[in-house]
Design a protein around this nucleic acid. Sequence first.
DNA 1: CTGAAAGCGCTTACAG
DNA 2: CTGAAAGCGCTTACAG
Lengths: 337, 337
Amino acid sequence: MVNIGDVAKAAGVSRSTVSYVLSGKRSISQDTRDRVSAAIAELGFTVNAGARALATSETMVLGLHVQFEPDEFAPAMLQYVLPIAQTARDLGFDSMMMTEADGYSAIRRMASSNMIDGLVLLDVVDDDPRLSALRVITQPGVLIGLPADSAGLDVIDLDFAEAARMIVDRLASAGHRNVLLITPPQHVFDRGGGYAARFRDAAIERARRAGLRLTVRAGESQEPLINASLNGLLDDLADNTAIVLHNDASVAALPGVLRERGIRVPGDLSVIGLFSESFSRTFNLRYSAIDTAPARIATLAVEQLVRRITDPVSAGAPGVRLVTPAFVDRGSLAQLG
Amino acid sequence: MVNIGDVAKAAGVSRSTVSYVLSGKRSISQDTRDRVSAAIAELGFTVNAGARALATSETMVLGLHVQFEPDEFAPAMLQYVLPIAQTARDLGFDSMMMTEADGYSAIRRMASSNMIDGLVLLDVVDDDPRLSALRVITQPGVLIGLPADSAGLDVIDLDFAEAARMIVDRLASAGHRNVLLITPPQHVFDRGGGYAARFRDAAIERARRAGLRLTVRAGESQEPLINASLNGLLDDLADNTAIVLHNDASVAALPGVLRERGIRVPGDLSVIGLFSESFSRTFNLRYSAIDTAPARIATLAVEQLVRRITDPVSAGAPGVRLVTPAFVDRGSLAQLG
DNA sequence: CTGAAAGCGCTTACAG
DNA sequence: CTGAAAGCGCTTACAG
């Protein structure tokens, strides 16, 4: 492999000059710059990443740790992973993907072997064991998902409470008085998926104020339970005029269940969900929804992380940034009365 | 950060001895080994990856390039990415994820800057521009997906031709004589997704021999075209007793369409698909299918790549390995006559 | 505007 | 069984 010395020799300059041409960190005469550039092009020289990392202590690599919950609804994850890698690249970083179940050890290993300049944590839960790793290592991290204690950490998440309020307000002003909310499965609450509680609690609170009767049920995550549970709810709670779904698996299964029961949306029932554009496309869902905006959240997270790596001052004090939700109207909400 | 010199000092040995304790590449007295290990543990020492890579020319990192086709059915990709990263880790490698649209440049950059020891290419098509990058770089690669010219390359793919023959044979021996095949969308053929043609052509050939009338139609990949096209086919080709789907989007949409038309499976129509277990779970599909076995293919690919990196002799001559398909019976194939 | 040299943290022949 | 030293390919103060 051709190295910086070969380039120097070919251009008739020193190795440091080649390095400075590459980095632009000092002024070089037009003439030598041209000779060096020509030599680089001719020899097809690329800086050796390991050597540069060793000399600068900067790897230009971001770590990305994803949890893989076997009982989780999988298709959602890629919506974050892809934009994370893409944004990182746009900012000059590569992405190292970690999938170890033991996130704590994985992060410590990667950080202490100096493979990464920073870390993105996906799907952070309330009492996430990865956070203690983050507090020990020297590299900064950014969380996607708000944990119980986020002191000193950069966090990006959707404003789930605001999302709930927006939905309840729309339902209320459309004249709905009896609404069913299907939350994520119980195991999401158990695991500490705080977003589920934030959405639910804000919905309950807002419904109370609006004088709206909100019935809350946890959805299932595995067939055939999903269908059975949806059917059961539609049997028992037939007086609801609207259903709010904060549950990927249930909302994906809903069209089939409604079709089977001959229920028309929004004629017989109004439906509002909480899912991304791409989720809507994948499952061909025509329900109005709060967009969970995975690409936007991923981009913001990486941008903040890179800012903290390259220019901590401009990154400001670490803190939580909740993304304001956007409502996408697909016409599944009926105006009553 | 603590380095190998700190450990050496603490243990009262030379840096080389610490290194040899780490690598096990020469025998060390029990006593010094203990002292070194103790020092490593106490100081929390981890080898600096960049320095090691510089010294050994081995990064212990695998590159993974994924194409992101906006018109593609996305959920499938993660089924490969996760097991790739997992298998790599089991074999001592980390995974660098590349998502650049310009795969050729991405690969050349990563390879020539010596960030990776080998490369996994996902979703390889007939005339894949990434292959010319692979032929230039010094690191070995493995392809998931069989290209037109695979000379000198390690390739893993499902045996799509055999899958087609297995399906046709089952249909024939169950007494079906008129069968509809829905292939991947036209743009998959256009892009050179050879697997689509291999499946289709083998199905046609086998059907001819078995005296079975096979009607072939390309499916759509975007709603509302998918539904419309499925309905059109069921209208026009009502005399078919079975339908074979080699099309993710269509098979996911099929239950809804059949339910709407009141068609029962397998009472009114037999259905056989080509999709993974996890796909079946995600979309709650109860159709019998050839399992596309993404995890198995991913694992085989990484194992072969790592073999070629670490022990080229045992890896044998580069070549194509087609995975024999497995049929998963979910009871959607009716026995006729 | 440019060069010689030290140093980043490892590994591994070379010596004993 | 162990150590001193060269070398991997860069970057960056230090000098001029």
